[in-house]
Amino acid sequence: MLFRRIYQFLLVYFAGISGLLLVKLLVGLSDYVIPGIPLIFATAGETAKGYFFDVLNTLQVTVLGQVISIILAFTVGIAGRKSSWIGSFIKMIAYNIQAYPIVALAPIIFILLGDGFIPRLLIASMICYFPLLLSVLGVMSSPVKDIEHFYIITGKMRWQLEVKIRAFENLSKLATVISGSATLAMAGAIVAEFIAADAGIGYSIRIALYQSDLAKILVALFMIGIVISIYQGLLESASERIQKAWAISSGN
């Protein structure tokens, strides 16, 4: 899973670079518009190490932001799973807020909180929180009748058990949503850094953009792609192991 993620990214990345180089060649563009291979390599030599640590910095925010949003999404999703008025209220709020482009709130967050770690974390969390919440709400508010029936009719049902049944039965769906949300959290962190921050790969990309340096941006994109592929691959492998451990890999 991990290696498949990486080579898939490499394929896409190098296909993209090849496309750019083809356009450069056909149209005869300078390195200012589309950098040539020597310039890309030279830039990579200068910046790859720094960008790698920048991406790791961004990844820290991503992981933490994702963990926070997973915890929040499960808390709210579990609270909102009932068809009671509070459940409906939570769902209504969640559906409405998720329809709003959270990135648009970023400037307000930065004005209020300044730049630094917290605003980046907040934006990363917010961007991956709502899609997660909708999935968790969907899973948690859909009864697994053929399992739950016994517990309900015998009076043995507890909320923890209900949550466990629904989570277990939708484990692969939740795992996909959680690993997919890594990309969202990363995108959120990068957007936050891009708008206003003093660290992270988004911040470095912004500086490169100031200098119209596409070579730097291509190196940064490579680092982002590799790191997020590894992270997502690890998440997927972990979720596969958990699913295997719970023995749902076949027949269910």
Binding site: S30, D31, Y32, V33, L39, Q211, S212, D213
Partner: peptide, 13 residues
């Protein structure tokens, strides 16, 4: 000016 100089360095005319 910095844009122009950067572009010239990278072969733009």
């Amino acid at each position: 000016a910095d844009q122009v100089i950067r572009a010239l360095e990278k072969g733009a005319e």
